[in-house]
Write a protein that binds this DNA or RNA. Structure first.
Lengths: 220, 220
DNA sequence: GTCCCCCTCTCCCTGACGGGCGAGGGGGAA
DNA sequence: TTCCCCCTCGCCCGTCAGGGAGAGGGGGAC
């Protein structure tokens, strides 16, 4: 971690590139270039000596011209020491699969926090993968060729009910009153729920609940 | 509050009626009847002596037959001591206006907590109105005939940014790191935000943010 | 009958959260 | 200039949230 990681940003939107650049320059990263398309990225790599090559390429998947997947493949072929991190907006089963098959080391969504992005990039240089949790689930599904249930399906009915209340913004006390439980019992459930969903606190659980449609329409 | 409030439930879905009944019987309410339509409700009221009339009618707006607004009007006319609380799924400007004009004392959404529903009903018997916050805003708009900005429009840019992070499930510490602020400063913002939005805590603020589209699409 | 899961509860401890207050600096508006 | 809003920070204090461990009862599965 002595010298800054050299990063190449590939995204077809100039504003996005600028945003990522600003974020990364804030930390200790060296932006060695930007590209607006896969072709451009590949060309940029081709014109560099092996000592001058980026450590990590941050790449969006949705771009005109050369398909991003193909770009990943060529980049990895031309410069095996360069790692590719996919940084995109949506997460789809096939895309994850293809990107990793093409040689990407990680798959992030643009909702990533600066701190996590930094960790992912530093890790990528060391060859450490970084996958969005949902991408991990999809991968697991592929590998085992069995459906891996989304975390909330492992909730018991009671936990599910409590999660619904959390998703409506209730405090533990309110939930306890609503369900005629002791507050301690509710706390017990919340802990189990956070654990199962892989979230850190009730706010994240609430967001998870609404995103996954676990809060009835009329209750929002 | 000595004797139980006498309640009539009006909703075209039997399941909903049952749900409300279960909730209310759990507390100290007396369900004096159910009706599946406005006509039925009006007829039910007509067949009762004034001593036998419900204190509060809980009524959905979306029902076949006699328009709910008209039903409210007739109920209020036939039995002025009976208060009508609208309990519906959606909230629309015109409906609020019309329901109140027809004599309703309150306007609730079905997302209401048991405890609040109970308070609204008890209050209604005393002639105390109960309006969903958004209904209050719409009303205010009508009365002043000036647009009343939704609460989040009064946020400063910085507060808005902090709310976005809250809407992504960040803790105060994470927000501080993300924005290069002290945790104390972030706490200050969160308090102001909760105050402006009229919410109790960060979970409710996060839910508010996503519901009102304050968290960028790609950040969810 | 036994086992295991689910539901419920309790106690304790730490840290995070949220309210209230004050305070300084910067910039725009009157 | 003066005033006010915004941004930033600090401190105190009470409450809430979350982790951990343990424990009892009920009911279904085997």
């Amino acid at each position: 971690m002595s010298e800054p990681v050299r990063v190449l940003i590939v995204d077809d939107h100039q504003i996005v590139r600028q945003g990522i650049r600003a974020v990364l320059e804030d930390e200790d990263f060296e932006i060695v270039g930007e590209a607006g398309s896969g072709d451009e990225a590949v060309a940029l790599l081709a014109g560099r000596s092996s000592a001058d090559v980026p450590d990590v390429v941050l790449m969006d998947l949705v771009m005109p011209g050369l398909p991003a997947i193909e770009a990943i493949r060529r980049i990895r072929q031309a410069s095996p020491s360069t790692q590719v991190l996919v940084l995109t907006t949506f997460l789809e089963d096939r895309q994850v699969q293809e990107a990793l098959a093409a040689g990407a080391i990680g798959f992030l969504l643009k909702d990533v926090l600066k701190s996590d992005l930094a960790r992912a990039i530093r890790g990528a240089r060391q060859g450490r993968p970084w996958l969005h949790p949902e991408a991990q689930r999809l991968l697991m599904q592929r590998v085992t060729s069995r459906p891996v249930p989304p975390p909330h399906e492992t909730l018991t009915p009671r936990e599910r009910t409590v999660l619904e209340l959390i998703g409506r913004g209730c405090s533990n006390k309110q939930i306890a009153a609503e369900l005629h439980l002791s507050e301690g019992t509710v706390k017990g459930y919340t802990s189990l729920i956070f654990d199962k969903l892989g979230v850190a606190d009730r706010t994240q659980a609430a967001l998870y609940a609404v995103r996954n449609g676990l809060v009835p329409e009329s209750e929002r």
